[in-house]
Simulated scan of single mutants.
Amino acid sequence: MELSGLLHGLTHQYHGKDKPVDYYLQIGEDRLPLNEWLNHEVTISYLGQKNCIACGRKTNKTFNSGYCYPCFTKLPENDLCIVKPHECHFELGTCRDESFGQSYCMIPHYVYLAVSSDIKVGLTRKNNELKRWVDQGAIRAIPIAEVPTRRMAGELEFHLSQFLPDKTNWRKMLKGEVREVDLITLRDEVYSHFPDAFKPFQYREDEWVDITYPILESLDKINSKTLDKEERIGGRLIGVKAQYLIFENGVFQARKHAGYQVQITVQSGS
Rank of each mutant, 00 (worst) to 15 (best):
I53C: 12
N78G: 03
I222P: 02
H159F: 12
N64F: 07
F72M: 11
E231H: 07
I222N: 04
G5H: 01
V83Q: 03
E98D: 09
L6P: 12
K167L: 06
E29P: 04
T212K: 01
G93W: 00
V115I: 15
T62F: 02
P148Y: 13
G176H: 03
S103F: 14
N35C: 10
N60G: 14
G269V: 02
D97Q: 02
I222D: 09
E189F: 12
T226G: 05
T59M: 07
K225G: 11
V266A: 08
A197R: 07
I82C: 08
V251I: 05
C105T: 03
E230S: 12
D97K: 00
V134N: 05
G137C: 07
L113S: 03
N60H: 06
N51K: 15
L245S: 10
Y191E: 03
K199R: 14
V111T: 01
K120W: 06
G9R: 00
L10R: 02
S161M: 07
T265S: 15
I246D: 05
L186N: 02
E77G: 13
D228A: 06
M1H: 00
G122Q: 08
L6S: 09
I222V: 10
K199I: 04
G235S: 04
D30G: 00
H15S: 12
E36A: 09
C52Q: 06
Q267Y: 14
K131S: 13
T62S: 14
H86F: 07
R255I: 11
I184E: 00
